[in-house]
Design a binder for these strands. Structure first.
Lengths: 106, 106
DNA sequence: TGGCGATTTGGCTATAATGCCAAATGTACA
DNA sequence: TGTACATTTGGCATTATAGCCAAATCGCCA
């Protein structure tokens, strides 16, 4: 793996890492239903407002969501709906491994 | 978000977190081309064998890859090729944000 | 302008992830 | 059986992440 490849994987990992947290996954899925402001999202999650704000900042830094300030609120929305395709794939992974454990295949 | 949902997001995050590392992304992509043993993979990466072995263990725990022991080697292969779809999506995200920064759109 | 609600930032602690080395394990084969 | 090779595991130091509180911003409106 050369330097250029390494940089590519760094960048890829940065975006995927932004998704790699339960709360942030929830935020992504919730935002896929429409824009929400920080307090609305905070009401759905067991965490401090500042924590939610920081999670949103992580998603924003990865260009997964964007926020628009209207009045004193910031409305976030999903910028890259394609990330939702992760959910289906990952749920396949989970089902498959559960099936494997139960059925003792292999 | 109730307890059941929370558990679901925990599980999803566990799998995605397994992908959220440059080296592990490389391993996934490399294994998509066919099975490889640990030393082969180590030769392609700037890291210790033990480090690569641990990365593979992470991917295996997430049911993304599987390993088969043949002789004294363990050959790993990609179990869930659907995760490759992450790459395309994530590269879109990256391109879009690059374009945005350059073109100052928005 | 003063104060209130919404959001972000700073700072701190606790926890988790990373990566190396060294040692242990497992397998083949002389 | 002993040695060499492949892989995994234990242990440790370093670094990154998470989450809370408190404080700082920002915008609105009386």
């Amino acid at each position: 793996m050369n330097a250029k490849d390494h940089a590519r994987y760094e960048t890829l990992a940065h975006v995927i890492k932004a998704m790699a947290h339960p709360t942030r996954l929830f935020l992504v899925e919730e935002l896929s239903r429409g824009e929400r402001c920080v307090l609305e999202l905070t009401g759905m999650v067991r965490a401090d407002v500042s924590t939610v704000s920081k999670h949103l900042a992580v998603l924003k830094a990865a260009a997964i969501v964007e926020g628009e300030k209207r009045g004193s609120n910031v409305y976030y929305r999903l910028k890259m709906p394609c990330v939702l395709s992760f959910f289906g794939c990952v749920e396949n992974v989970i089902e498959a491994s559960a099936r494997e454990r139960l059925g003792l295949v292999e």
